[in-house]
Design a protein around this nucleic acid. Structure first.
Lengths: 196, 196
DNA sequence: CTGCGATATATCGAATCGATACACTTGCCC
DNA sequence: GGGCAAGTGTATCGATTCGATATATCGCAG
């Protein structure tokens, strides 16, 4: 999704893609080369991205031709129509996949292009998820507090504080979403969201 | 290291090992089965761990014998002398490997068994590392602040706050280490650690 | 004009993940 | 006393990812 989203903004090289993913996620995990290039290859085979011919921009290079080791070879990738479509689909998804740890960060980074109701759904799902973890952690810590040494305790307390902070952060975001959205659906039916 | 450290406390099954690693790290990443069992196999081949014969505890089962699919098969793993040695070596390590993201958590979880000077070295290394990230993030955020949409900004700010919090946490721990350690090496030579 | 650091593509082997298969145990309801 | 769901437990498969590395070009400082 990160690759699709970045290429949706502008075509670019693999190398720059890598750098941008890094800053996009705020300096946490960066796509290794061993993931990046195979991923680009796969996406090209899937028809989501293509490599425009630098000599003739109306044509694209065939997916099987260039191993291009030897001479000079910069490869600019661009989104195809299918790729844009795929990205739009991802932006519309509001299910559990969107709020799990691995995906939420990237998903959130493209929130500006996501519909307000989907944003709210994802934020609430994410908060529920993190609250679960917080409660589990709290319970486990309460149970074992006296058996743990100073450092294990400190580590778990720090972890608990972190998830707690994330819950508060998400709550602020949700509040913000709600007041921004209120103007539109004013006092319309607001069933307390059966939490299913 | 997590496996060695847990088996150092008591022999146990792979399944329980998995659960304990999960709580050890405070509910973040849990060893998948696809990592766990191959890892145990490797460690057994390396001679770090063994499987005591349940019938005769003085003997251990050979490393190649039991695929044991079919009947009943619980496999209890225990540390060998080499395994204990290996774990002690890891506890002594105070280099950069000990303070990188992936390892620091586990490393810290076993701090109670680590020497005071090694603890301090690791904490300071870790703090330096996290400060670098914080400064990089801050700089990048300052440079691009006005170009970012509300959500990307929010994400990066939250990330920055998180690393900032970690720096403060580490600083508190370091202060604590210093006052606890002072009694022992009183006013001995304290060269300012050439930062190399 | 040399050497160094950034840009850039690519691959290799090993480790990891996520899903799943299989089998036994325990508790609990009807 | 039967059934069956949830938990315990070992194990592997294919796909993905990582970390290290090879190779080559570009820009520019000394």
């Amino acid at each position: 999704m990160a690759i699709l989203g970045l290429l949706n903004q502008a075509p670019m090289h693999g190398y720059e893609l890598r750098k941008r993913v890094l800053v996009l996620l705020g300096g946490f995990r960066a796509l290794s080369y061993g993931s990046l290039y195979p991923a680009l290859k796969r996406m090209r085979e899937n028809g989501w991205i293509c490599v425009p011919d630098p000599a003739d921009a109306t044509r694209v290079l065939p997916a099987d031709a260039p191993p291009l080791t030897g001479k000079r070879g910069k490869v600019v990738y661009a989104l195809t129509a299918e790729g844009k479509e795929r990205f739009q689909d991802l932006l519309t998804e509001g299910g559990p996949e969107a709020w799990e740890d691995e995906r939420f960060g990237v998903r959130f980074a493209f929130f500006a292009q996501t519909e307000a109701d989907v944003r709210l759904r994802i934020l609430e799902g994410r908060r529920r998820r993190v609250e679960e973890r917080r409660d589990g952690l709290r319970a486990s810590l309460g149970r074992t507090r006296e058996r743990l040494d100073r450092y294990t305790l400190e580590l778990q307390q720090h972890g608990l504080d972190s998830v707690d902070r994330e819950v508060r952060w998400l709550s602020e975001l949700i509040d913000h979403e709600r007041v921004d959205g209120t103007q539109i659906d004013r006092k319309k039916n607001n069933p307390p969201a059966s939490t299913s």
